[in-house]
Structures are given as structure tokens and as C-alpha cells.
Design a protein around this nucleic acid. Sequence first.
DNA 1: TTTTTATTGCAATATTGTTGCATTTAGTAT
DNA 2: ATACTAAATGCAACAATATTGCAATAAAAA
Lengths: 138, 138
Amino acid sequence: MQILQAQGYRLTKPRKQVLEILEGTRESLSPYDIQRLLRVQGEHLNHVTIYRILDLFCRLNLAHKVMSTGGFVKCSLGSEEGCHRFMVCHQCGTVREFADKELCQEENEFAQHLGFHTEYHLCESSGLCANCYRKQTG
Amino acid sequence: MQILQAQGYRLTKPRKQVLEILEGTRESLSPYDIQRLLRVQGEHLNHVTIYRILDLFCRLNLAHKVMSTGGFVKCSLGSEEGCHRFMVCHQCGTVREFADKELCQEENEFAQHLGFHTEYHLCESSGLCANCYRKQTG
DNA sequence: TTTTTATTGCAATATTGTTGCATTTAGTAT
DNA sequence: ATACTAAATGCAACAATATTGCAATAAAAA
């Protein structure tokens, strides 16, 4: 959160609220999900505001958009560790972030063999997390 | 296209039209993009129909949804080659499909180390294709 | 406290996606 | 060829998501 101030952005109540919501769950949340969760708490944020806050958070690497769900999660890794990957459990919805520099580099090299110059990676696995896998197989 | 008949689906004019549109471009197209392109040709398809056709095509692996653009491309690979990956040029919009079994497997193994059981991969690189890279760097 | 300006709220609108049901049409049987 | 039937499409209505410009508000600095 201090990163906001450090970059010259203001530390506002809506921004704190959205971050708190993201921190309070391991699932990905759409802008309207966030609005609904806040409403339950008796709070109101305009959806436009939420969109703009999420945009900002993504630019600052405080949050990520998970493409396969369309929602957002709080970023849990620093930016030194290569590109960020996500495992999305389609059972419980939990999103876990991880990174693997080697995999990332292999992928870049592979693409470059085909003449392509990668600037950004989008890597998501969907499947079952350890918990849900255990439950399902018994 | 014969795969439709083979699977018991009918070979209809709208389906032919959508496939023809997808075959005619290397960029990813949203359902409404496709509708607009058809309108230019003096043809009309209801957007609901297009949504349903694209759903079907994706189920049959005739098309893919490119998550980073939200559009669809015609599938250019068979299903034996592991998970399908995409390189999206953010300059010209061209989408190229490729596959790499080894990468795929490494990724699965990595995830499994973390207790996750992968069922589906989403892998897209965005950057510059060979053409646009050459133009840009001169 | 006052001021400044980034941030938020609001209204209006555009875009995208979904559902149920009537109509049409591809493929089949007559 | 014609009639039949289920699959596919069209239509209408609606729901959800996303964007823009401008007025009102509030965070941080003076």
C-alpha cells in the first residue's frame, strides 16, 4: 500500500477498501464482485471507481487480472521472479500465484525460434488444487 | 468442416460463413467483429447465432478463444501436439498458434510439485512478430 | 485552515453476453 | 420430388460489463 504514496498516488478510502477486499479472499473477483462484497458491508463504491482502482493496481503490480476467470487477485510475488503464473482451481475458485524463471526463459526462447519477440506472458493453469483433488479422489 | 457432419452437426450457411471469416484473417475476431465483417459483405447473422457457432467451434477444436484479446481464431493444429499456445503481435494483431509438448509437460510437473493437478493450460505470449520487430528496429 | 488538484461520484451510453420461444432449414424418410 | 422432423437460427427482451465527460469531493501540501 505504501507503494501508492511512493509513486505519488493518494492513499484514499476507496483504494484501501478495494485492497482489503482483495486481501480477504483467495478467489479472483470482478469489479462488480468487489462492489457487491462492499455493499454487504454497508459500503458503497461506484463501479467506475473500482474499475479505475483495479487499473491502477495492475499498473503498479499490486493486482493481476486472471484472464480465465475475468477477475482480479492481489499480487503475491515481487517482480524479480520472472513472469507470474496462476493456478486456478475450478472447484473452489482459489487462485495461486507462482513463478518460474526457467520455464519463462524456455518459453521465450521457443517463441524466438519462431521469430517472435515476447514482451509479456500470460500463463494460467486450470485444474484442481491439492485440497479439491484429495476430496474428489477420496 | 467435415468434422461437423462427422459429429452429427449440420452444415449450415451461418456456420460456413463464420468459418470463412475466421479463415480469411490472421487476427482474432470477437463475435461482433465477425458480425460487422459479414455486414460489410451484405450478409446478416444474428449475434446470438455467432456466439453459439463459436461455442460449438471451440468445443470441436475448430477455433480457439484468445484470452488476451477476447477474440477467436481458427484452430491451426491437431490435438495430438499437446496444449496450444498463441503468440499475439500487439502491433499488427496477428495471432500465431504453436505447440510444444515438452514445455507443456514441464509446466504440469512444476504445478504438480505445488500439489496442483492441471487439466487445461492457457498460454499466450504477447509481443512483436518477426515482421513488426524488423520494421520497428529498422 | 485554506488551497490545490488528484480522485471519486454520477449520468449517460456503449459494448458484450444470455435466455426463452417462434420460425426456419438441413438432412432424412416417404 | 415432397413431406417430415429435429436441429439450428432469428428475434425480442434483458442482464452484465465497460467507457466517457464533467461536476463534486477529499487527500495532501502550503
